[in-house]
Structures are given as C-alpha cells and as structure tokens.
Nucleic acid binder design. Structure first.
Length: 117
DNA sequence: GCAATGACGCTCT
DNA sequence: CAGAGCGCCATTG
C-alpha cells in the first residue's frame, strides 16, 4: 500500500483502467471518479503519460469526455491509440470522434450481464 | 513549502 | 453538434 514510490496514487488509476472491457472506452473523469479522485481527470491523463509501453494497462481505451483522442504533446502515439481502438471494434465519427452513447464503458453493466434492476 | 506543469471537464454561445 | 474560455486537482522540481 503506501510503499509505492513512483506510482503513488497512480496504482489506483491503473487498476480502474485495467477493468475496462474490450470494445469499450472510458473517459478520464470516469476513471478518476472510480479511482477515488473525482475532479482530478487531469491527473489520470498525467498518470497515463508515465505508463510504459510494456504495461498491462489498456491506456488506449481511455479518452476525453468529448469522445476524442487528446492531442498530447511531443508524441505521435495519438495515432496509435486510434488504430488500437478500431482494432477493438470501436468506430470513429467522421470528425474522429467516438459515440460515447454506445461505446462509453459502464461499470454498472460490467459486461452487459442482465439488467441491474 | 512554494511554484509550475499537464493524454481534462464543464458551461456558455 | 461544434467551438472557445476558465477552473480543478495531484505530481514533480
């Protein structure tokens, strides 16, 4: 627990992202909320920035609330993300946006398992 | 402890 | 729906 040197609160963020099912996408705010730090959507993005390419965290499933890929600085990984998402079965709008109404991850549904009631 | 940075979110037009 | 501006919070130096 508190013995995480570099990661810090990021561990909680990574844990939430890893829970995102394939074919779905989550927003920074959503991840931050589930991570226990609502309002700190920026830190979620910052945490992903520190993610290694060998990590088991599906960072490509994390996008902004606008359903678009953020134009991060000094990297072309933004293109890679779109390719990965399309590979997951997610489609993009003509403007490069994703219909969150259909692809946004819903932690309550967990896997479209029956109706929550 | 203070100041600066950052893969964002929300509201208004 | 799309575009622009301000605010929020956590991490780092």
């Amino acid at each position: 627990m508190a013995g995480s040197p570099s990661t810090g609160r990021y561990e909680k963020i990574y844990a939430v992202i890893r829970k995102i099912p394939r074919g779905k996408v989550g927003t920074y705010g959503q991840v931050a909320l589930l991570a226990g730090i609502p309002g700190a959507a920026r830190q979620v993005g910052y945490a992903l920035h520190a993610l290694p390419g060998d990590g088991d965290v599906p960072w490509h499933r994390v996008i902004n609330a606008q359903g678009k890929i953020s134009p991060r600085t000094g990297s072309d990984h933004d293109v890679e993300q779109r390719i990965l998402l399309e590979s997951e079965g997610i489609i993009f709008d003509q403007r490069g946006r994703i219909p969150l109404d259909t692809f946004q991850w819903d932690p309550l549904r967990r896997s479209s398992r029956r109706t929550p009631g």
